[in-house]
Amino acid sequence: MNINQISVFLENKPGSLSKLTGFLADNKIDMSAFQIVDNSDYGIVRIIVDKPFDTLTMLKDNGWVCNMTQVVCVKIPDAAGEMSKALTVLDKERISIDYAYTYPNRNGDGALMVIRVAEPEKVAGLFSKSGIKVIEA
């Protein structure tokens, strides 16, 4: 019931990011979320795409170092306190978050938040029970 996120290793040097985005565009991969985390030498690009398995194979075949992880994706309505409400669910259960990021909902309806946790299935269940909408692949 969760979403497969792809992470790609990129060296911090001019052109490496556009090489990746160019590759995705050339292969007509539809990307809905995109985030970069980096330190001074390298970055990790995390993306959510329409065909994650095909994309992963394609990237690997073309020499990228990448992997796939299951993340939980929830809908955050466009109203004050909604994000906090979602995170409180995890706090109560003392679940720690490895990382999280948000991106706009395509339907223009609030935002979507991606959350990386150790047990995504369990966390998705907790959200559903608390009335928070979990987005499925």
Binding site: S7, F9, I44, R46, V65, N67, T69, Y99
Partner: peptide, 15 residues
């Protein structure tokens, strides 16, 4: 050179 075995989606793991 980065390898698939060493790679992770988390910077903390790689560090």
């Amino acid at each position: 050179e980065m390898t698939p075995e060493m790679f992770s989606d988390s910077v903390a793991d790689i560090t």
